[in-house]
Design a protein around this nucleic acid. Structure first.
Length: 576
RNA sequence: GCGCCUGUAGCUCAGCUGGAUAGAGCAACGGUUUUCUAAACCGUGGGUCAGGAGUUCGAAUCUCUUCAGGCGCGCCA
C-alpha cells in the first residue's frame, strides 16, 4: 500500500503540477508519506502540499484539491482529508487496511521503502578488546550494539561481515606474558606485585594451567628482580626485557599460551552472549616493519611516497593535509611502528577487501582518534566516506541505587560473563541497547533481575508470552488460527494493527541511522498497546467473526514483537 | 586553549534528516481480579524542551551565542 500511494503522489507531482523541473525534483526529494500516529488522522499522511505550497508561495489548499481528487479515485482509498496546516490524510477501506497487514505478515522479507537503500557489502568491526583479560561490562555494550546493527542491516538486505581485530602484537601482550611468568614462579606478594602488571585472578588460572619446562633457582629469581626502576611503567618494561633475555624460547611459549588462553575465553563469553564473528583479524598477520614485503611495510611505503617526512629521527604522516590537528608519527625514532601505523595497514587491508562501507565500533574515549584515521584513509587514496565510526559510551552498573565497582586495585572487575550469569544474555542485551550507543548508560542490575513492573524487559516479553498463551488456549478449543481478516465491523484492534505496521519503518530507520535503541522503544510501545487491548477486550469469549480478526491481529503483533526481539539478539519467551 | 558529546516532568530517559495538543517508565495519590497470565490495566497531578537571538507558513528538532556538566587532545594502545 505504501508503494502504491507513494507512486500516486509522485505521479501527481509529475503530471498535475506545473512546476519547474528543479522544483519538482526538490519536492520529490522532500515530501514524505508516513503512517499516522492516530487513526483520527487516517492511516497514511503526507506533507506534500505543505512542501509544494512553500516552493511556489501559495496556499496548500490550492494544491490539495487536485491531489485529493487523484487519491480518491483509487479503489483502496475510502476518503482523503485536508487537515491541520495542510497535511493530506488518507483513510483506507477496511479491505485495503487489512490487506496491507496480511501482505506484510505473509512476506516478511519484502520491505517498505527498501528500494531506497541499495544493497551494500558492509563490514562491522567491534569489541576488538585487547586480548589481555576477560571482557568486562563495557565491552558487553559494544558487543550487543555491533551485533544488533549487524542483524538489522542484514534484515534490510545488506551483506554483513562481523570482524574482531585482535591486538596481538604490542607491548600489552608482553605485559600479559610477564604477568603470567611472575605468577607462575611466585615472584611477588600481592602487595608488591608491579602496578602495571595484570593482577586479575585469571592470570593465576593461566599460570596454573601453563605447563612449562623451566625451573628457577632462588638466585636466578633474585637477579631478575634486582634493582628494578621505581616507576611502574619502567619497571614492567625492564622486567619484560630481562625475562625475554633470560629464556627467549620459554618467553614466546608463555606469550602464545597466554594469548591463546585469553582469546579462547573471550570467544566463549561472546558465544554465550550470542555474538559470532565471521572473522578474527590478527594484528600480527600484518607482519613486521623489518620485513620489507610485509603488509605493514607496503602500506607505510605507500603513504611515505607522498605524505610523510622525517623529523627528530621519526617518520611523520602529513595528516594535517587531510584535516587532522597535527601530523602524526608512524615510525618511531627507534624504528618501531606506532599504533597508528598498524591501524593504517589494517584499514588499507579492510578497504581492499571490497566493502562498500566499513563500520568501526569504538569506545567513546577514542573519539579524538577519528579524524586521525580518516586522514590516514584519505592519505592512502580512499574516501573517508567509506568508513563510519560509531562510538559507544561506557556503561555504569548500578545495584540498589549504588554504583557497582567496575575495577579495583586488586584487578578484579565485573565481567561480561558475570553479568550474563546474573541476569541472562537476553535481558543484558535489552538494557545495553535501551539507549543511544554514544551516550552514557546507567544500567540497574537489580531492576534487570527483578520480576517487578519496573522491569521493561519483562514487560515486553510478557506481551509476547500472553499472546502465545492465548493462541494455545484458542487452539485447545479446537479452532484453527485464521489465515486472513474478514469484514466484521469491529475496529478495536485497529490501533494495535496500525502500530504493528510501523515496525518496518522503525527497523529501516534503526538500520539507516545505526540506532538499535529505536527498536527497544518501539517494542515498549507496541507491548503497551497490546496490554491495553488485552485488558479491554475479552478475547476468548468474543463473537466468532470478531474473534477471527482479533486472533489474526494478535498473530501479527506476536510476529512483529518476535522479529524485533530477534533483531536485538533476544529470544522471545513463549511463557513466563 | 582546541575538538566532541550532553542539558526535555521530582528521577531515568524517548522524540532531534523541521510538521498537527511535547511522550513513556519510575516516584506520589486514587481505583480495577467469581472472567483469557495483576510481571497487567485505568484515572489524577506534574513542563519558560538550560537561557537568549535568528531562519521558517511552522523550531524540542536547523544556525549563532551564553551558561552548566562530561570526555578527548602522546614517538600509549
Amino acid at each position: 500500500m505504501y508503494n502504491q500511494i507513494l507512486s500516486s503522489l509522485n505521479e501527481f507531482v509529475d503530471n498535475d503540477l506545473s512546476f519547474g523541473s528543479d522544483q519538482k525534483k526538490t519536492l520529490l526529494n522532500k515530501h514524505k508519506l508516513t503512517l499516522t500516529d492516530s487513526l483520527q488522522k487516517g492511516h497514511w499522511t503526507t506533507n506534500l502540499c505543505l512542501i509544494a505550497s512553500n516552493l511556489i508561495k501559495t496556499n496548500p489548499r490550492d494544491i490539495a484539491s487536485a491531489l485529493i481528487l487523484r487519491l480518491e479515485s483509487k479503489p483502496e482509498i475510502e476518503k482523503v482529508e485536508l487537515a491541520g496546516p495542510g497535511f493530506v490524510n488518507i483513510f483506507l477501506t477496511r479491505e485495503a487496511f487489512f490487506n496491507q497487514l496480511d501482505d506484510a505478515y505473509n512476506n516478511p522479507n519484502s520491505f517498505v521503502g527498501s528500494s531506497r537503500s541499495p544493497k551494500e557489502k558492509i563490514q562491522i568491526e567491534f569489541v576488538s578488546a585487547n586480548p589481555t583479560g576477560p571482557l568486562h561490562v563495557g565491552h558487553g555494550r559494544g558487543a550487543a550494539y555491533g551485533d544488533a546493527i549487524g542483524r538489522i542491516l542484514q534484515r534490510l538486505g545488506h551483506e554483513v561481515s562481523r570482524e574482531y581485530y585482535v591486538n596481538d602484537a604490542g607491548r600489552q601482550i608482553d605485559i600479559l606474558a610477564c604477568s603470567i611468568f611472575l605468577r607462575k614462579f611466585e615472584f611477588f606478594d600481592d602487595d608488591a606485585f608491579p602496578g602495571s602488571a595484570y593482577k586479575g585472578s585469571y592470570i593465576l588460572d593461566i599460570a596454573e594451567t601453563l605447563e612449562i619446562d623451566l625451573v628457577l633457582t632462588q638466585e636466578e629469581k633474585e637477579v631478575l628482580i634486582d634493582n628494578l626502576p621505581d616507576n611502574d611503567e619502567e619497571k614492567i618494561d625492564e622486567l619484560i626485557k630481562r625475562i625475554k633475555t633470560f629464556d627467549s624460547n620459554n618467553w614466546s611459549l608463555l606469550r602464545d599460551f597466554g594469548l591463546g588462553y585469553v582469546i579462547k575465553s573471550i570467544k566463549k563469553d561472546l558465544t554465550e552472549f550470542k555474538v559470532i564473528f565471521d572473522n578474527w583479524f590478527y594484528e600480527s598477520s600484518l607482519g613486521e616493519l623489518a620485513d620489507k614485503k610485509s603488509e605493514i611495510s607496503l602500506a607505510l611505503n605507500q603513504v611515505k611516497k607522498e605524505h610523510a617526512y622525517e623529523k627528530d629521527g621519526a617518520v611523520w604522516l602529513e595528516s594535517t593535509k587531510f584535516g587532522d590537528d597535527k601530523d602524526r608519527v608512524i615510525i618511531r625514532d627507534d624504528g618501531r611502528g606506532t599504533y597508528l601505523s598498524a591501524d593504517l595497514a589494517y584499514h588499507r587491508n579492510k578497504l581492499d577487501r571490497g566493502f562498500d562501507t566499513i563500520i568501526n565500533v569504538w569506545g567513546s574515549d577514542h573519539h579524538g582518534y577519528i579524524r586521525r584515521i580518516e586522514a590516514t584513509i584519505e592519505a592512502m587514496g580512499y574516501s573517508k566516506k567509506q568508513m563510519k565510526v560509531q562510538l559507544v559510551q561506557f556503561a555504569n552498573l548500578f545495584e540498589n541505587g549504588s554504583k557497582v565497582k567496575m575495577s579495583t586495585r586488586s584487578g578484579n572487575f565485573y565481567t561480561l560473563k558475570q553479568l550474563i550469569d546474573d541476569i541472562g544474555s537476553d535481558a543484558s542485551r535489552f538494557y545495553y541497547l535501551s539507549k543511544q550507543a554514544d551516550q552514557h548508560l546507567d544500567f540497574d542490575i537489580g531492576i534487570a533481575r527483578s520480576n517487578s513492573k519496573d522491569n521493561l524487559y519483562y514487560y515486553v516479553q510478557y506481551a509476547h508470552a500472553r499472546i502465545c498463551s492465548l493462541e494455545k488456549k484458542y487452539l485447545e478449543s479446537g479452532k484453527i488460527l485464521p489465515s486472513k481478516f474478514n469484514n466484521a465491523n469491529f475496529d478495536d484492534c485497529d490501533k494495535l494493527l496500525q502500530m504493528a505496521l510501523g515496525a518496518q519503518f522503525i527497523i529501516k530507520s534503526a538500520g539507516d541511522n545505526l540506532q538499535p535503541h529505536l527498536i527497544v522503544y518501539y517494542l515498549r510501545d507496541i507491548a503497551q498497546s497490546f496490554h491495553q487491548f488485552y485488558n479491554n477486550v475479552n478475547i476468548l469469549n468474543a463473537e466468532e467473526l470478531e474473534q477471527n480478526n482479533i486472533l489474526r491481529a494478535l498473530m501479527i503483533v506476536k510476529s512483529v514483537i518476535a522479529s524485533c526481539l530477534e533483531l536485538l539478539g533476544i529470544e522471545p519467551l513463549e511463557k513466563m
